[in-house]
Structures are given as structure tokens and as C-alpha cells.
């Protein structure tokens, strides 16, 4: 019974991977592949946000700023010093991590809505710096001419080729997030989210883990930013507005906070949003309505619905087994 279900799971996974690999071929044009690529980047940011908010309960609304930091680091190092993607990536990760510590520090002092506004504020400050330090960032004009990455002579110079780079990044990002959240780091994060006081009493260095969670989220967004810079080859400050943070927040919550798969599912929202384009201005109105409906009726997001369904299934099985054991005829007493 058990081996059969694992067999099915493996088959489903293989089929899913095959589908992912075939996606650029299925897509009808470059534009659709671009949307897939952007979906991948949003999933990366969402994974980071999920670790900080979903697991550790630390609201980080500076995600757009981290994305910007990653993108600008990559753009500046690539255009000024000709650093290739493989060097701009680790450099941007280090810088996002350092800024993550700065944004994370207030979490030692303030929580919940206070932390929300503090991270919004710090994110704004970062964006303001990028817009105003024109000598370095060229301000609103942006930075053009960022090179596409290449590996052993193979250049990711089309949307289709870049797709596989993004795909690898997302899979790696997901697996690493899983490694972090499944073991002791994840438990410390969840302990802090569940009960801050008790976590401390059990020897959890709460401050360290809170900052770590925000740093991780920042690095994820930073990596997405690097990927974006090298994909788009041009960046300007207006693509990193607060709105992008809100969008990642919604997709994570609609997918399911505190569950990494939720971030993957949330990616569908990016595609859905594109599909809603046909409704023009009404698109975002529907989007707002949908968000409110999700919050009111499916607060756990899609993963929450899946979980509830599984639990119901489990209790049904358990009660059926119990009845069998007791030899009772089925009755209506079980909920």
C-alpha cells in the first residue's frame, strides 16, 4: 500500500519535471516564456518571504528593496567591472545578507505591525538611496547593457535558454529552503513564531534566529534580483516599488504561509494575473476582491485547503478503522 503510493508520487514528480522541462516548447512565444521566467523569480522571493514570515513570524516588507539590492549589485559589478554572472551572484548574496542584518536588527526590539512599518520604512530608504545616488546608480535613468550569463561557452542569450537557468535556481532554492526549514533551524523559527517566550526558555537564541530568518529572506530576494538583472539586461528603480513586495506577500499567502509548497503554488498567481490582463483595469479590482475572499474563507491559502482535506481524509480512515476494530456497524456518530 505504502510502496504503491510512493511509486505514484515518484511517477507524478517525474511527469511534473518533464512538464517543467518542456514548458519553453509548449509556450507559444517569447513573451510567454518571459512570464514563466518572472514566475520563477517571484517564487524565489516568495520562498524567502515564507521562511521569514511563514516560519519565523517576522514580517519583512522590504523584500522589493532586497530584490533591488541584488539587481543593482549585479548590474553595477557587471557593467563597471565586467564581473560575470557567476561572480555577481555570490557578491550580491553577501551584500543582501549584510543589509538583511541591518533590516533584521529592529526585530529585536519591535514586533508585528511595528516591525511591518519599520521594514517598509527601511525598504523605502534603500529605494530612495538607489534613486538619488545618481553618480553611482544613474538614478531614474537606470542601468543598461548588463550581460547575459554564460557557462563553458554556452550563453543563456534567449528567453528559452534563460528559463533553464531560472528553473535550476528555483529547484535549488526550494531544496535549500527545505533543508533549512525541516531541521533544527526551521524548528527554532517555528518555535519563535508559535511562542516567543517559550522559545527563549527552551534555549533558543531568539534574536539570532529572527535576524537569520530576515537575512535568509533577503538573500533569496537578492538572488532573484541578480537573475532579473542578467535576464532583463536593463534595470531602473521603478520596477522595485513597494507594490512588488505586496504582490509577493499576496502570492505567498494565497499559496500558503508556513509551507514551502505554498510558494510554488503561489507562483500560479503570477500567471493568473497575466491571464486577467484581458480585463484591463478591472483586472486589479478582481485581484483585490480575490485577496479579500482568500483571507476570509481560506486563510491557510491553497496549502491550507489541501491540508484540511488530507486531515478529513485521515480522520475518516481512522474512524473507519476504529469501527472495524470494534466491530460496530457504521453509524452517524462520527463527525
Amino acid at each position: 500500500m505504502k510502496t504503491r503510493s510512493t511509486l505514484w508520487k515518484t511517477l507524478a514528480l517525474v511527469a511534473f519535471l518533464a512538464l517543467l522541462l518542456a514548458m519553453p516548447k509548449i509556450a507559444r512565444n517569447d513573451y510567454q516564456v518571459r512570464i514563466l521566467n518572472m514566475t520563477g523569480l517571484y517564487i524565489l522571493i516568495s520562498l524567502g518571504l515564507n521562511i521569514a514570515m511563514g516560519y519565523c513570524g517576522q514580517i519583512n516588507l522590504a523584500m522589493g528593496a532586497f530584490w533591488a539590492v541584488g539587481a543593482y549589485t549585479a548590474a553595477l559589478l557587471n557593467t563597471n567591472f565586467k564581473w560575470p554572472f557567476w561572480l555577481t551572484l555570490p557578491a550580491a548574496m553577501v551584500i543582501s545578507a549584510i543589509i538583511g542584518v541591518v533590516v533584521g536588527l529592529p526585530s529585536l526590539k519591535v514586533r508585528s505591525h511595528y516591525l511591518a512599518i519599520v521594514t517598509i520604512g527601511l525598504g523605502e530608504v534603500i529605494n530612495i538611496i538607489l534613486v538619488n545616488e545618481e553618480k553611482i546608480t544613474r538614478g531614474a535613468m537606470g542601468i543598461p547593457g548588463i550581460k547575459r550569463p554564460s557557462l563553458f561557452g554556452f550563453t543563456f542569450n534567449s528567453e528559452q535558454k534563460y528559463y533553464y537557468l531560472v528553473l535550476v535556481a528555483v529547484i535549488l532554492g526550494y531544496l535549500i529552503a527545505r533543508q533549512i526549514t525541516r531541521h533544527r533551524f526551521g524548528r527554532a523559527f517555528r518555535a519563535i513564531r508559535d511562542d516567543y517566550v517559550a522559545a527563549k526558555a527552551m534555549g533558543v537564541n531568539t534574536g539570532f534566529y529572527q535576524i537569520l530568518a530576515i537575512v535568509i529572506s533577503g538573500v533569496y530576494a537578492g538572488v532573484a534580483g541578480v537573475l532579473f538583472a542578467h535576464l532583463n539586461t536593463y534595470i531602473s528603480p521603478d520596477i522595485f516599488e513597494f507594490r512588488s513586495t505586496l504582490f509577493v506577500l499576496t502570492m505567498t499567502m494565497v499559496g500558503g504561509m508556513g509551507n514551502l509548497l505554498g510558494s510554488l503554488v503561489g507562483g500560479i498567481l503570477v500567471i493568473l494575473q497575466e491571464a486577467l490582463r484581458t480585463f484591463k483595469d478591472w483586472q486589479l479590482v478582481f485581484y483585490g476582491v480575490a485577496v479579500v475572499l482568500v483571507v476570509l474563507f481560506f486563510p491557510g491559502g491553497v496549502m491550507g485547503i489541501a491540508q484540511r482535506w488530507r486531515e478529513r481524509q485521515a480522520t475518516r480512515l481512522a474512524s473507519a478503522a476504529e469501527k472495524e476494530e470494534a466491530g460496530n456497524p457504521p453509524s452517524g456518530e462520527v463527525r
Partner: peptide, 23 residues
Amino acid sequence: TFQNLRLFRSMTVMENVLVSLGH
């Protein structure tokens, strides 16, 4: 321990205990 129980509500019994073993 706490007088009014403060168990980690998202966790199993095992995970609750594992948090303490973290350090």
C-alpha cells in the same frame, strides 16, 4: 516549565522536545 502551558502549537510532541535540543 510554564504554569499556563506554552507548547509550540504547530509542532508534534517530538518536535516540541527537539526545539530544546537545538543548542
